[in-house]
């Protein structure tokens, strides 16, 4: 019986390891290509590189201006995350505990934002941003990203607040606590964990966003990392698998490291945003 169990476990791990390898295979392939020469890639994309050419990563980093682009991405993502977390928390609290008449209409309007595809509003958004003088500015990008991310944030925080027992709030109210006090003393201390989770997800969204930076940022010195990668391969008349692969590595590895560090938050967020 025990032996059978051990064998089962072995098979199980075998299958899982095989699936895991299959999952990371595409990334491994790119990682190898980043160290190869273009003729090597054409000869056999799967073979190991003849030499580990680390300088190619360095060249892609410099040629692709990824240093400044990383700063730009941070400069966009941090305010975006702050705006989304704060506005979502307040709005979700208001919708759940705020005793707001007509709250369900506000909720419906926000639900609309959850289902509207970004491409559907992009033309008008572009013109509006232009009218407000927010094109070609990192602030403009942050505001647009925050607005687009907001509906999800509100829904996530709302589903969390719905799980807080109403009695808790009522008790505080009976004790004479006003709305702000209830929010500050009762709800916010409980909301730290989901807020952190929301922040993580929003950061990822902002970091990976492509369409908004593409249309909003015009000055090359303002480009984000994702946009930088797009333009690295976007020189229509050049083909350089080596540099493109190095660029992929440069942009993918940091977000993967962040993910593994914050894995708990990510996965908690995914499952929390879920079942309500």
């Amino acid at each position: 019986m025990r032996r059978r169990k051990t064998r089962h476990t072995l098979i199980l791990h075998g299958v899982l390891i095989a699936s895991a390898l299959l999952t990371v295979f595409p990334l491994g392939l790119i990682a190898l290509m980043a160290f190869k020469t273009n003729p090597e890639i054409f000869a056999n994309p799967l073979a190991l590189p003849g030499a580990w050419r680390w300088q190619q990563i360095g060249k892609a980093w410099t040629d692709g201006h990824f240093g400044p682009y990383y700063l730009n991405s941070l400069q966009v993502a941090v305010p975006t995350v702050l705006m989304v977390v704060i506005a979502s928390t307040l709005a979700a609290y208001g919708l759940v505990f705020g005793r707001l008449p007509g709250a369900r209409y506000a909720l419906a309007a926000i639900l609309l934002g959850l289902i509207v595809p970004l491409q559907a509003i992009i033309v008008s958004l572009f013109h509006d941003l232009g009218d407000m003088g927010l094109l070609n500015s990192l602030w403009g990008l942050s505001l647009a990203q925050a607005a687009v991310g907001l509906p999800f944030g509100i829904f996530m925080m709302r589903s969390f607040f719905l799980g807080i027992p109403k009695d808790l709030i009522e008790a505080a109210r009976l004790d004479g606590a006003g709305d702000v006090t209830v929010l500050r003393r009762v709800v916010l201390p409980l909301a730290t964990a989901p807020a952190l989770t929301l922040a993580t997800l929003q950061f990822m969204y902002s970091w990976n966003d492509f369409l908004l930076p593409l249309i909003i940022l015009h000055d090359p010195s303002l480009r984000t990392v994702t946009l930088g990668l797009f333009y690295l391969q976007g020189g229509t008349y050049t083909l350089n698998y080596t540099m493109i692969s190095a660029g992929v590595l440069i942009t993918a590895v940091p977000i993967m490291v962040v993910f593994f560090l914050l894995q708990r938050q990510f996965i908690a967020g995914v499952t929390a945003g879920a079942v309500k």
Binding site: V123, F126, H127, L129, G130, D131, G133, L135, N136, L214, I215, H218
Partner: peptide, 11 residues
Amino acid sequence: ATLPAALTAGQ
């Protein structure tokens, strides 16, 4: 994708 709208917007 970007030039026409940017010119129209005066940006």
